[in-house]
């Protein structure tokens, strides 16, 4: 069974978000990690490989530090990696990323494509769905349990008030939700072996893409940070009077009751 996983490199969950002079998100000195939802996807791919045999390929599009997360996936147990660099692309959107990944996937063999259901940075939750659409594949998102048998995937997902079990034919795109599994840490041996595993570096031109095909269709006009929370107000006085004042403020100032 051949599985391709599409991890993305994101800011560390504890990174402090700031804006630079041009009003863009400041990437200077920020610790980068594998998007945690994508870690679930990598882990699930490895478990399926351990159960059914096969091969796990990790593919990511992005800047020069992307090989770090690909090496992490290789150290966890993936077999090979492909990094498509973002050289020459000033602005990208989900269309750009999905177009590039789908183009690359056309050249790969796969029975299953796995990804996190969203990235923790922009949270748009679009790329896996767009890839499925471009490739004409069925997709199940936010999966918390996955079984593969006889050319089919049976996936459980949380829905309002309960669970839904979905069956799709392979190949398919499945996105991982928290709860699917507990990702492993790479072992020391895994880390040492990772550098011997193949990591291919491609450019967008290598894929025969460029210009309008990968130009973003959506442009962010402005980023701004939430305003700092203002200080709380303490109402003094006798309890009965203070309660009455609290209700008055909730009604007239906060307008919540």
């Amino acid at each position: 069974m051949k599985i391709v996983v599409l991890p993305k490199q994101t800011f560390d969950t504890e990174a402090k978000i700031t804006l630079d002079a041009a009003g863009k998100i400041n990437r200077e000195g920020v610790n980068l990690i594998m998007n945690p939802y994508d870690e679930f996807a990598v882990e699930e791919a490895l478990r399926l490989k351990e159960k059914h045999g096969g091969e796990v390929t990790v593919v990511s599009f992005g800047g020069p530090k992307v090989p770090d997360i690909l090496r992490q996936a290789l150290a966890m147990g993936a077999d090979k990696a492909v990094h498509v660099g973002d050289e020459g692309l000033e602005e990208i959107d989900e269309h750009t990323t999905a177009t590039i990944l789908a183009k690359l996937l056309r050249d790969l063999e796969y029975d299953l494509i796995l990804a996190g259901w969203r990235a923790i940075d922009d949270g748009s939750a679009q790329v896996a769905g767009r890839v499925a659409e471009i490739l004409g594949l069925p997709m199940v998102n936010m999966v918390i349990k996955l079984d593969i048998a006889e050319g089919k995937a049976v996936a459980s997902r949380e829905i309002e008030g309960g669970y839904e079990v979905v069956e799709v034919p392979l190949p398919a795109v499945i996105t991982a939700q928290k709860g699917l599994n507990e990702p492993r840490y790479p072992t020391m041996k895994g880390i040492m072996q990772a550098k011997k595993k193949p990591m291919q570096k491609l450019t967008i031109a290598d894929l025969g893409l460029g210009g309008e095909e990968v130009a973003p269709k959506v442009r962010a006009r402005r980023y701004y940070l939430p305003s700092p929370r203002s200080q709380g107000k303490i109402i003094t006085g006798e309890p009965a009077e203070a309660a009455a004042e609290l209700v008055r403020l909730l009604r007239e100032e906060a307008k919540v009751v």
Partner: peptide
């Protein structure tokens, strides 16, 4: 090295 960094980050996460 890349391996030392990955090892450090892995052990840090575990710890």
């Amino acid at each position: 090295t890349d391996e030392q960094i990955m090892m450090r980050d892995t052990v840090r996460r575990l710890a």
